[in-house]
Design a protein around this nucleic acid. Structure first.
Lengths: 145, 145
DNA sequence: AGAATTTTAATTGTATTCAATTTAATTTAC
DNA sequence: GTAAATTAAATTGAATACAATTAAAATTCT
């Protein structure tokens, strides 16, 4: 098999492993997020809002690497459940500000145990997890803008 | 901020970086795959078939970490484009065998340059890429079965 | 000021992804 | 040998993702 075809083998494709690993990890979230009535996308939106309280759709998108095409329906879902409110900014009517509600704030405690449970599912030791964290940061950073 | 909340911060979540990095990398495939008329999912199915020529849906699913709910429509799409054929196994009628066609085989040459182009987009050096490859293998492996 | 450009969300359409169910075929147990 | 259990795909339904377009508001340029 020549070099060209060697690159086309699945075992050699880090991108494929990234894609597959990401989906497997997402799947492992489901039981814990189901228990608190959230999808993964809703969960990461709330992670931002638990810290920042209020945030524009644009800023959410930058932090989560998602666009309004994905976020708008997710935010509507969170609003329908009463976990966030949405309103136009007074100073710039183009901007929609998303704010955590008291009910959304209350979810924070229930979610606090999730990261630990996921970490327990993952087979990497501390040093490996830290290195993966660093490598993914470097990879992600290169895609910014 | 206490330890519980520290775990809930986005910057500390390797899972989020994995999820975001995987999507960014997938996006970088698009121009190259668009040029040969494939989606990423179709592309990875063909990667298997370029090597194995014929494969059951079940085996494809095990290799790609996908189930028939995802694969069936993708395989129908590839069949509609003439890149694969599908038939029931004679020895076990439950099994659907997917086979590469000559047109599908012909795509292999066009796809041969894709991995190199993606690698060029990625900001990791050789050693880092190898380490990421290894860590993702370990992570993925722990989800098998 | 007023036109052209840019920015921000929402909308639309396509393709995934996955859980849950269904159907048909095969294997296992009794 | 047949009923029960298992297996492999397909189907259905919900939730993402993302490109492309649209609409409204703000900014820039002259």
């Amino acid at each position: 098999m020549n070099e060209q075809n060697e690159g086309l083998r699945l075992e050699n494709q880090t991108c494929f492993r990234l894609y597959a690993a990401a989906r497997e990890v997402m799947k492992s979230y489901r039981p814990y997020l189901d228990a608190i009535g959230l999808t993964y996308t809703q969960y990461i939106v709330l992670i931002i809002l638990w810290e920042k309280r209020e945030c524009s759709v644009k800023t959410l998108g930058e932090k989560l690497y998602l666009d309004s095409g994905t976020l708008t329906p997710v935010l509507k879902g969170l609003e329908a459940k009463g976990f966030v409110s949405r309103r136009r900014s007074e100073s710039d009517e183009r901007v929609v500000l998303v704010r955590i509600t008291p009910q959304g704030e209350a979810l924070r405690e229930k979610a606090a145990g999730v990261p630990g449970k996921i970490a327990a599912c993952i087979s990497l030791d501390q040093a490996e997890a830290a290195e993966l964290h660093r490598l993914l940061y470097k990879l992600l950073d290169s895609f910014k803008k």
